[in-house]
Design a protein around this nucleic acid. Structure first.
Lengths: 152, 152
DNA sequence: GAAGAAATGGAACAAAGTGGGATTTCTCAG
DNA sequence: CTGAGAAATCCCACTTTGTTCCATTTCTTC
């Protein structure tokens, strides 16, 4: 299970070392794509493929299909770790996540999020301030099943 | 499978270099035609026909069928890459896609979309609003215990 | 504190991208 | 039918980028 938080950095060639602990679980071949709040998501190849099932073979003349595919396929990249466990974050993803120098790897059960460190610190500060309220809402929601289906 | 996105440019002779990764999959002879949202579609000869599925075999009396086919078929061009992997986007397609200087190649499984960079950035900003909905599926799927594939 | 493993940074090498110029082809006018 | 001009194509060389490998430093463990 992927848990914990590790810091890393991106060198001047865009290279970044994947934390050892995570590497053992995710494998050498990983998929990196756009995530929430301008973070990046990395998942194993297997998990990625299982997500794609059901999106393939759909008529591309439907606009919904096109949008989903542009996001899932056009936004994702297949990366391999080098012999030292390093990989290159594609330029457009670095741009998206506003990655500069220092980054943070977050183990979230089955996947790993990558954040720009400054961005993460700012986000976390906000999160900690509001965690009581957010958790409370989560509890409230779970106590009222009828409200769960509300998804923005 | 064609995934990821790459940036490219059109030189002063109208030439563009097709990204290496895509070239290896598509081959040297490609078909380029009008796409949706003012993008361009490039596809290998083999996949061209399967791409048209969904538009064929429908009653010809439907004007939508005729129009969709005129759009896709009538706008198609056959292009070959030069020894350096470069090709020329036909003038009418450059006009259609409002291609100026910088372009973006999007790998979408069986075909590649080409966008004017500025146009893509604008479109993507809108697309990112859907990130929540789609990313949630990626994460949800990974959290379902029944689907976990146990790794060493 | 020493030995081994891992992380980091840099240098060297290879590959791909870019631009310019020369040659060929095409078109249109004389 | 022929020649000039423009456009397209080909080819070569330079620049930039990406990749691999190696050496040094840092961290762990015994």
């Amino acid at each position: 299970m992927l848990i914990g938080q590790f810091e890393g950095k991106v060198d001047n060639k865009g290279r970044s070392a994947f934390p050892k602990k995570f590497r053992e679980i995710l494998g050498e071949k990983i998929i990196i794509t756009l995530g929430y709040e301008n973070s990046l998501i990395t998942v194993s190849e297997e998990n990625w493929k299982s997500l794609l099932e059901g999106t393939e073979g759909r008529p591309f003349i439907q606009s919904e299909t096109r949008e989903t595919q542009r996001f899932l396929l056009g936004g994702a990249s297949f990366v391999e770790l080098d012999s030292k466990g390093r990989f290159i974050i594609p330029a457009y993803l670095r741009e998206f996540a506003k990655v500069e120098d220092e980054i943070v790897f977050l183990g979230l059960s089955r996947y790993v999020e990558i954040w720009d460190k400054k961005h993460w610190i700012g986000y976390r500060a906000n999160l900690e301030k509001n965690i009581d309220r957010i958790s409370q809402r989560l509890v409230d929601k779970n106590d009222h099943p009828t409200e769960i289906k509300v998804k923005k």
